[in-house]
Design a protein around this nucleic acid. Structure first.
Lengths: 215, 215
DNA sequence: AGCATTATTGATCGTATGATCAACAAGCTT
DNA sequence: AAGCTTGTTGATCATACGATCAATAATGCT
């Protein structure tokens, strides 16, 4: 009938088509969640038959796992890049807390939380989740170690190697608070203030040093 | 054939049957997750036709929401009860941190995390989640307020009413750390130690006062 | 004992999912 | 231009889900 009705999708190179598919899956995950990634859903977003999506992916579980990694790894790298531009560990930690808590990445947070649950029934995804958690932890650990080495942080009587443990702890706190904001918006004033104070206590930084400056 | 083959389930009173169904749903949620609650799954666990489950519940979403509330409310009440038996706010806060982090309630934690995601597509569940979060927060807020009033905690320059905010914050931290332990077991040593130190920093308690004593 | 009530069944409908594969056609090579 | 490679289709299968409801049988009441 109308010219807009396209019977058959234009033939594209495998690389290009594969990119379209992973990009569509990414969009769906961010907008509707990882569990909304289905063969038909992705296919219709690309404008293609469902069979084609299956053709480019071994199975749906793999597509979900890959999409999770793509989304989360991009965020980690982006933040890590911004950290590198900052002068010292104190600024980096303060920036980290401020950025992750500002609510501008709720969609990514939702993906994280859903992945925790889905990993129970998707082994490939579970592995990716652990990988990405490790990546985040590594970034944080580096900052903590630098701070201790430079004398900005004081972990007191804690042994060496506790930087790893501390990094996990801080990461968990951030995760919990961002996940909370997924469900509960109001109620908490001064999110950043409290978290900063808590972390200051943990790493032995000067009170107020991790405070996010109002910009 | 065999005497074990029961054609028809023994007829029971509505109250009794309803209890069986909610109990079955509870077991499924704890063992396999909230999303494993289906009419057929619950029915087979009770040993009954799927239609009967539907007969006792308006719809599956409601059963899921109700099951979430039952599981989580029971935990809150149990912990609140134990808190009441403790002498003061410092002991209560220390106990709270210690108990929630000891890994003995991972199944309940999994239910929490899944509910955060499922609430996106189940409005009734979303409401229950908010309710139960409020209940937890109220318990924590009470402890914090008592501690401030008794001079055990010192929130410094923070205004009154920040006890609410502090309670939310501590709750979020606990949630995140327990959720983390759902996926990642190793890696963190001294979970309790770090958390205790963080919270001590937040509420202005004496260092070590919230430390969980090795029992 | 007979009857009315109601707990219980299980088949059925509509929908959605992942996976598979023979058939088709677009584009490249010869 | 002919032929071959391969990207693409869409129908199909097996499975699972929530929901519905007429039929059935057990219980309690008269």
């Amino acid at each position: 009938m109308s010219s807009t009705t396209q019977k058959r999708a234009t033939r594209k190179s495998p690389a290009e088509r594969a990119a379209e598919i992973t990009e569509a899956a990414r969009g769906i995950a961010l907008e509707q969640g990882l569990s909304a990634i289905t063969l038909r859903n992705v296919a219709s977003r690309v404008g293609v038959a469902s069979g084609l999506v299956a053709h480019y992916q071994p199975n749906v579980d793999a597509l979900v796992a890959g999409t999770f990694t793509a989304i989360v790894a991009a965020e980690t790298e982006e933040v890590a890049g911004m950290l590198a531009a900052l002068p010292g560990p104190v600024e980096r930690l303060a920036f980290l807390l401020g950025t992750l808590m500002d609510g501008s990445r709720l969609d990514v947070t939702a993906v994280w939380v859903e992945a925790w649950t889905l990993g129970r029934r998707n082994e490939a995804l579970a592995g990716c989740v652990r990988e990405q958690m490790d990546a985040w932890q590594a970034v944080l650990q580096r900052v903590v170690e630098d701070g201790v080495a430079g004398g900005h942080f004081d972990t007191g009587d804690l042994e060496a190697g506790d930087a790893a443990s501390l990094a996990w702890q801080i990461l968990g706190m951030i995760d919990g608070l961002t996940a909370q904001s997924l469900v509960r918006w109001g109620g908490v004033s001064d999110r950043g203030t409290h978290l900063a104070r808590a972390v200051e206590g943990m790493v032995g930084a000067a009170r107020g040093s991790l405070q996010v400056s109002a910009r």
